[in-house]
Computed example of a mutant assay.
Amino acid sequence: MSQAKPAPRLTVMVAFPRAQVLDITGPMQMFAGANGAAGARRYELVLTAEDKAPLKTNGGLKLMPDRSFSDFTAADFKRIDTLLICGGDGTAAAMENPALLSFCRKAAKQARRVASICTGAFVLAALGLLDGKRATTHWESLSKMQTLYPEIEVDEDAIYVRDGKFWTSAGVTTGIDMALAMIGEDMGHETALAVARQHVVYMIRPGGQSQFSAQLKAQSVAPGRLSDLMQWIIEHPSADLTIPALAERAHMSERTFARAFQAETGMTPARFVMQARLEHARQRLEQAQDPVEEVARASGFSNTEHMRRTFQRMLNVSPQAYRERFHSPALSALGVHS
């Protein structure tokens, strides 16, 4: 006797005018990709808004909602597996929309899993659903969330956070990371990895990863001695990267260098060096089969234990476990190295 196929998980994305289009399409495409990878409709995807009129996003594109809030029956609410709330320029107006808030409150109560992308977290916060919980949002809105909602434990660095059934992500492309993590939870890591590869997503990033990569931080600094030095650090993680050595390379006194670096980047030189070394090690573990000891040495860690402690503190996973989860045999076969 053949087994009955599992019912598709009803996955509802809540949208509003001037939403960030990638907050919507990024996660939804990952779930659609999971359907393709499974060869079956494992997720029933629905885009909903206050009405079914074309919805203009903040990028100018218009999306057609599948259903309006009023279309949902009591039976529909009971079927919702995952509720997703996008962010974008229209979030402030959405937070004052009675129909949207009423729908989200009712759906969140029934759903197995509730998630926000970017500033969509403010909708959950406005409903009191994140009180006493850890959460994150786009880096530009972190201080605003801390000020408006002091009862929320705001994680200032993570690309996404899970606390119970509530998931919040840092915004835009991190919604893709969060969706892949959900797919991995529902269907297994191999399926999530297959979806990531199909969509040429560089990797499946763990939620504890920082919103601020060393490379992006280096690019954000005005051209000059410090930006050149930061790029050099990224390219030479195993070099002597102590304050005296870096100050000498920057042609500054140690005190002036440390002060200027903090003022320009918002972080200490030691923090930036740690991030650069961690990113280098991650890439080596993902893309090559080098022994962990060699990865630690090439990435500038004093030894494997030093690297292990850094991975545990920053990513909540050991280097070996990280490789087992995120290593790409295809890149290794091509001889790709960082």
Rank of each mutant, 00 (worst) to 15 (best):
G88M: 07
T11H: 03
S2C: 01
Q146W: 04
A218L: 07
L55P: 05
F326P: 01
R259V: 06
Q289N: 14
S253W: 06
R271N: 01
M30W: 02
G87D: 04
L45S: 07
T265P: 07
D157F: 11
H280T: 13
A4N: 05
V12K: 01
A250Q: 01
T304R: 14
F311M: 14
A321D: 15
A247Y: 10
I234G: 03
A218H: 07
P6E: 05
S2N: 11
T137A: 11
Q198G: 05
E254Y: 08
I204R: 11
A94Y: 10
L148N: 14
D81M: 07
A239R: 04
H280A: 12
F212C: 05
R134F: 07
P206R: 06
L278K: 14
L83I: 13
K109G: 15
A4Y: 03
Q219R: 13
P150D: 15
L180T: 02
F103G: 01
E235R: 13
A93P: 06
E254R: 14
M95D: 11
K144C: 02
S318N: 12
A158V: 10
T57Q: 10
V292P: 00
K56E: 15
G39R: 13
L10S: 12
A93V: 13
E305H: 05
E305S: 04
S220E: 14
I183C: 10
S328L: 06
L315E: 09
A107K: 00
H138Q: 09
V123P: 03
L100S: 01
K165P: 01
R277N: 07
R162P: 02
S68E: 01
R18T: 08
M95C: 15
T57G: 11
N35C: 06
E185K: 03
E293P: 02
L100K: 00
K106I: 00
G300N: 15
V292T: 10
P237K: 08
F72T: 01
H306L: 06
H327I: 07
E248Q: 15
A37T: 08
P329W: 11
I80L: 01
F212L: 12
M178H: 06
M267F: 02
A270E: 15
F261G: 10
I24L: 12
L334A: 04
P206C: 05
A15I: 12
R162V: 13
G184W: 09
T82K: 03
T136K: 06
G90I: 12
G59C: 11
D228K: 11
V292M: 07
P27A: 11
Q209I: 13
M64N: 15
I234M: 12
S220Y: 09
A214G: 06
L216Y: 09
G188M: 13
A245K: 14
A250L: 06
S2Q: 08
T256K: 05
L83R: 04
P54W: 02
E294V: 14
T268D: 02
L63C: 02
V154P: 04
F311E: 12
S299I: 04
Q287L: 05
V21P: 06
V317T: 15
L241G: 04
F272A: 02
S318I: 14
V154C: 13
L226I: 15
D81N: 14
M187F: 15
V273Q: 08
E279G: 04
F69M: 00
L83A: 08
D177V: 06
D163G: 00
H236E: 10
D186V: 05
K78G: 06
A222D: 01
L331E: 10
P291N: 04
